[in-house]
Design a protein around this nucleic acid. Structure first.
Lengths: 225, 225
DNA sequence: TTTTAAATGATAGTATTACTTTCTTGTTAA
DNA sequence: TTAACAAGAAAGTAATACTATCATTTAAAA
């Protein structure tokens, strides 16, 4: 059986739907590769156009600017991850086990999903670690937020917060704890690999240690009576 | 009695020491104001030069580029904050009280320090919240790290981790927990003001709630037996 | 006091970035 | 079969991120 996974994207993120054409899909696919390779600051539409074999103007027909493209692929990732969370925790009754699954999904290397042909989830995961917070750390967060650009992130956060409440309905900070583990799954990974003295697992560089840390953090907070 | 507080800066951060001249001090002072006003992306040396009444080339004699200037003011802030931590926790014996003081220093509005005439710590604090992580989320973290650009951040993290170990010498993740509360002091504040549904205190926008959350997080993690 | 070195000002110039515009050709769905 | 639309090709613009040169002011050393 072949299933093609489609993440429904906010229409305001693009000028022309990149999922609807070959060129559009190439923009996403090569865009991910180039942002991964150069980092967001050194990534340009000119380089992307050369990489694909089209022109700068061609890319601008799909995305207003490179920041919108970054928001697009980030939003896609959060949507995809929420699907993974819902899929992988389905039928699990124990919210503690659910939460452990969530932490594992957040903090460990992503396996490429064959149901999305033109998107490499592992590269995307690396991009989110380094560039993810740049989507909202801008002067125009509020406008972007009004356009609902960050809805997938906020939805995922709400899903995780609800699992936390299942564990302990009296816990006072489910949303903040959820956004904390989402951010820390990435930051501790980044620190471990780049600024190891900011973590306790610089020597091993083992992402399972990040998982242990996050589990310890979450369950000590939630289980308190 | 007048005390002038001087933070010793890494010499490799600048081409000419901005503390050593009037123009240099203006670059720092107005630089902070303009980054605060425009955000780092829209901040340029041209705007800064116009603001000060000098030329672009004049600024380039002090800083290689705007990213170095951002690292400079960020490093200054971490150095200053470490001084505040050491000063404010001096003579306190109970490490729990120390840690609460640290969290308060990290997460609440900074009062302008009269001992540093040309630097507005409150603006600086706001800048660190929005732009701080951009100092290291780059392609060249490792090179910058080799030059010790992030030493003040890492030192502060180590100081906080040590207080945590004073609370519980068996706690396994003091550094990761320290970097977590440093980052979250800023991110939860940013979320509260800009993406409130990622937190549990969007309605009140009260930074004391961030303090409560961080205290709950830290002490549940550390006190566990 | 004179010399000289360093800092600043003034001006110009370059490569790249971040776009916009226009016009033509190729494709596809009514 | 004819429009509508997507894409290619080419050119242009304003701003950014610098570098270079030379003249002038200032300030410390001889």
């Amino acid at each position: 059986m072949e299933v093609q996974l489609q993440i429904k994207m906010n229409e305001k993120l693009f000028l022309r739907n990149p999922e609807s054409t070959e060129l559009g899909k190439k923009i996403i696919q090569h865009g991910i590769q180039l942002v991964y390779k150069n980092g967001f600051e050194l990534f340009t539409f000119k380089k992307l156009a050369e990489d694909i074999g089209t022109t700068e103007a061609g890319i601008y027909r799909y995305f207003e600017n490179k920041h919108r493209l970054l928001i697009y692929i980030t939003a896609w990732y959060w949507g995809w991850l929420q699907y993974q969370v819902v899929f992988n925790t389905n039928n699990i009754k124990d919210p503690v086990i659910k939460l452990k699954k969530v932490i594992q999904l957040l903090a460990t290397t992503v396996v490429d999903d064959d149901n999305t042909i033109h998107i490499n989830e592992d590269l995307l995961h690396q991009i989110i670690i380094t560039e993810g917070s740049k989507t909202y750390l801008t002067r125009h967060v509020s406008e972007d937020n009004k356009e609902q650009f960050f809805k997938p992130y906020k939805d995922l956060c709400a899903v995780i917060a609800n699992i936390m409440l299942e564990c302990n309905p009296k816990y006072k900070y489910p949303r903040s704890l959820a956004s904390t583990i989402i951010e820390m799954a990435h930051f501790q990974n980044f620190f471990m690999n780049n600024l190891p003295s900011l973590t306790d697992f610089g020597k091993t560089k083992d992402e399972l240690k990040v998982v242990s840390f996050l589990e310890d953090l979450v369950f000590s907070s939630i289980r308190k009576t």
